[in-house]
Design a protein around this nucleic acid. Structure first.
Length: 432
RNA sequence: GCCCCCAUCGUCUAGCGGCCUAGGACACCGGCCUUUCACGCCGGCAGCACGGGUUCGAAUCCCGUUGGGGGUGCCA
């Protein structure tokens, strides 16, 4: 066990789009480092020149920045430390701890004994050396493998806590062996985090599952919500309060309380949690948040920030992911398409009379929520309809749908002219 | 096959020997509120995989069984 100020590293391999599991690992490293006032290093494991691209590296930076995770010092690139790894392999070769095998160098693992280490999440883990093969430490192209870079760097950088996914648990004894062969008498504290799994309880995979963080961002998941949700995958706050700022999670978080069992990624819960974060936004913040999604619409190009701010109170509590927003407000900015099913249902009511009465009354009524509300209520009463029924034909006529934001607030924003035009269009559609 | 890990409501979790007739959240089902939907509020359904120990006492400790999962690359 290493003592002194904790020093952690998040060490992603830039071999593809940032992954949910990668993000969770980054987060847990960061949470613990910040919790105990330690150092948080970022190490890019780009030893595989074929897979590690500059694009992937910048995607990692982007992801970390989006999630709000910061790091101490400059990022460390393994690609620039190849000499150190090469020297380590040479040393093992000289000492007879490694040997050549068809152009590659393999580390000779003892035939007996066990290699063990302590894991904060799992307790003591032991591997019989007999079960560990003589693994490759230098490829035939001369490059060092992941195990070497890992052992050399963690030792050289003085890493005290290694926090990573459980899928790496089996590689740990190899790294421990190499570390000892480098002359180290101690090992860092390990914490192997539970895997994030899908509905089938299998490790999230690029092929089967939607694992790209970008895809959640593009759907309109707020980074604060994503970080909060990810923190809950393998850990729970002692007081049971799940939705809370990252700063509070930093205070409460401890690796010792991390669960060992795999955690299923649940989009429903993420969505619910995101809804809470969305609802906590003020009008201006909400408008700014949905703006990119609105802009992407055919009608969204000239929608200004003020209009969106005005619309915010109407749809905020109905928005769970930001990409939901444009559809709900489209009718305010362009001619709505009438939903056939909703139209049929609404016209089963005495729609003709309601629309005729509204058409007439709305031409005169003061254009504000209260007056419109009172007016339609009165129309309904005359026809023996509760307001809930009476508003339906008007809603479909004006918004195209049977459900949507509060009607009178919507009408107020839409304006008298557009409202009357749509009421009349609906009346003629009814064959009135 | 071999090695390793795991096991509390459908899901995420609280629980770290007595506070548990197991708490919260999501989902689901009722109800209230109400201009639709939503939000909010109230209520409900639902779990310690199984079998042995240890102990005065076990969801909590130990062993086994079963069931899941991960790894087994000149990927990381």
């Amino acid at each position: 066990m290493l003592r002194g100020r904790p020093r952690l590293r998040f060490a992603p391999a830039p071999t593809g789009l940032p992954h949910l599991g990668t993000a969770r690992t980054a987060l847990y490293n960061w949470l613990y480092a910040r919790h105990c006032g330690g150092e948080m290093l970022l190490r890019i494991e780009d030893t595989n020149a074929d897979l590690a691209t500059a694009d992937h590296v910048s995607e990692i930076f982007e992801m970390l920045d989006w999630l709000g995770l910061d790091f101490d010092g400059e990022p460390i690139y393994q690609s620039r430390r190849r000499d150190m790894y090469a020297a380590a392999v040479e040393r093992w070769l000289d000492e007879g701890r490694a040997y050549l095998d068809e152009g590659a160098v393999r580390f000779s693992v003892p035939d007996d004994g066990v290699t063990a280490f302590d894991d904060v999440v799992r307790g003591r883990v032991e591997f019989p050396n007999a079960a560990i093969e003589d693994f490759v430490v230098r490829r035939s192209d001369g490059s060092a493998t992941f195990f070497v870079a890992n052992a050399v760097d963690d030792l050289d950088l003085g890493i005290t806590h290694v926090v990573r996914g459980e899928d790496l648990l089996n590689t740990t004894p190899k790294v421990v062996l190499l570390r000892a062969a480098l002359g180290s008498v101690d090992v860092p504290t390990f914490a192997h985090l539970p895997l994030i799994v899908n509905k089938q309880r299998r490790k999230l995979s690029k092929r089967r599952d939607d694992v790209s963080l970008t895809s959640y961002r593009d759907r309109g998941v707020l980074p604060t919500a994503m970080a909060n949700y990810l923190a809950l995958l393998g850990w729970g706050p002692p007081d049971g309060i799940e939705v809370r700022p990252l700063a509070e999670i930093v205070e409460l978080f401890d690796l010792a309380n991390v669960n060992a069992a795999p955690a299923m990624f649940d989009m429903d819960k993420l969505t619910a949690l995101n809804g809470e974060y969305v609802r906590a936004l003020d009008d201006v913040g909400f408008a700014a948040a949905i703006e990119p999604w609105v802009r992407a619409q055919s009608w969204g190009a000239d929608v200004d920030h003020e209009s969106l701010t005005a619309v915010a109170p109407l749809i905020r509590e109905r928005t769970r992911v930001l990409s939901d927003a444009p559809d709900r407000i489209a009718f305010l900015f362009c001619e709505p398409e009438i939903d056939p099913d909703d139209w049929r249902k609404a016209t089963a009511l005495p729609a003709a009379q309601v629309l005729a009465a509204a058409d007439a009354a709305f031409a005169e009524v003061p254009w504000n929520v209260d007056a419109l509300h009172a007016q339609l209520r009165e129309i309904g009463e005359t026809l023996g309809l509760k307001l809930g029924k009476a508003q339906a034909p008007v809603r479909v006529a004006v918004t195209g749908r049977a459900v949507g934001p509060p009607l009178f607030e919507s009408l107020e924003l839409l304006g008298r002219d557009a409202t009357l035009a749509r009421l009349r269009a609906a009346r003629s559609r009814l064959g009135d």
